[in-house]
Design a binder for these strands. Sequence first.
DNA 1: ATTAAAACTTGACCGCCATCAAGAAATAAA
DNA 2: TTTATTTCTTGATGGCGGTCAAGTTTTAAT
Lengths: 224, 224
Amino acid sequence: MSAHATHECVQLVPIFQELEASQLDTIESIVQHHHYQTGETLFNAEDSLDTLLIVAGGQVKVYQLAANGREQLLYLLQTGDIDGEAALFENKQRTSYAEALVPTDICSIRRDDFQQLMQQYPSISINVLNVFGKRLTQLEKQTTSTATESVEARLANYLTETAASLDVQAFKLPLKKKDLATFLGTTPETISRKLTRFEKQGLITQKPGKVIQINDADQLLLVE
Amino acid sequence: MSAHATHECVQLVPIFQELEASQLDTIESIVQHHHYQTGETLFNAEDSLDTLLIVAGGQVKVYQLAANGREQLLYLLQTGDIDGEAALFENKQRTSYAEALVPTDICSIRRDDFQQLMQQYPSISINVLNVFGKRLTQLEKQTTSTATESVEARLANYLTETAASLDVQAFKLPLKKKDLATFLGTTPETISRKLTRFEKQGLITQKPGKVIQINDADQLLLVE
DNA sequence: ATTAAAACTTGACCGCCATCAAGAAATAAA
DNA sequence: TTTATTTCTTGATGGCGGTCAAGTTTTAAT
């Protein structure tokens, strides 16, 4: 972990974007750095909630476990994303688990420090509100979709959305099928079957290396 | 709608709780009042997002429609609750619908006004962050639960949680079966069947007026 | 390059629950 | 109260998709 990584960390995060260089320096001084290997756990549901996490580099999955032991992937955090609820409630337990999917650098800020920052720079709270708002919107959609649509429709939607957001026709699935399955609320077996089905219908083409090529996005969106 | 209803409106809401009476008066002056009949629509997904809503009295359901037309109930807003994402993003469309379930009084604050308030009184942003955080936690749980657990487990969980939060053994279902069904991601028919099943197992007793009595909460929580 | 382990695919089976339908009960209206 | 609507319950049916299992491919390790 090099010295300039510290600087990158706070600069990466949109929630600090209104602050000036000198103010960023102040924040840098209270940030702690961590590194996690692939598969390593960042936190468990049993852990106490006392830090705000910033993904300085890498990829992290945040998931919950249902009573029956099944896993539900909630967020896929990328570089620059934060895991935030953490810093805002007192004496609460976490409800989620987080695990590094690739070697990952994390910066953390203690809850007390972050709350002080928010008092000092109101723009931070506003920015965090925006992050939360987007996350709420995403979760609302995910809830609606898992509760009311078929697995096939959810998968089709995921494929077209991912392609659209990357602005490409073909892309590599960013997750193992198992993780993608827990994200879509299904199983790896079903994902395999549905992808094969889409391919037979000519809607997609599966290429080596988990690459999916979208052949007919319009038709995919009509899948029920 | 009486004059003192204005005063109640801002006092009701936890997000303003740190403010003094004189500051509340200022806010009162920029609040608009509305009344809705049962079944009346507060907003559609097509509406623009330019106000923060405060439920001054009554009950409101907030829901989404999936591509296939099925409804998903997301929130049941009670007196004192807010519908907030609204005020925070520019030029976005709503993604949800809202409908009054009983005669309902609403106070609204325009986005610009509310953002100004947040700049002026940082405690408001912090409070809104707390509201959002709780809502996120709730939604995360709902997503996990609908995606990974059986309808039976979700219903059992809903019953025990509702009873626990009201701190009673018996309570009246606050929603029609149809709405409860869209909340739990199922159908009214299935709810009927599951409740009958629970009753036959001695776990609950159904009484006239949609009243449910919990007989064995421990056993209910073990339902898979 | 070989071996070991993990991830993926395909098949067979079957249970949960959505759907359609019709009758009963409850609520609202006249 | 009587009538009309809406809501609720119960039955019959069928399909989606989860589970278990075995084989295949990919990835990782030595």
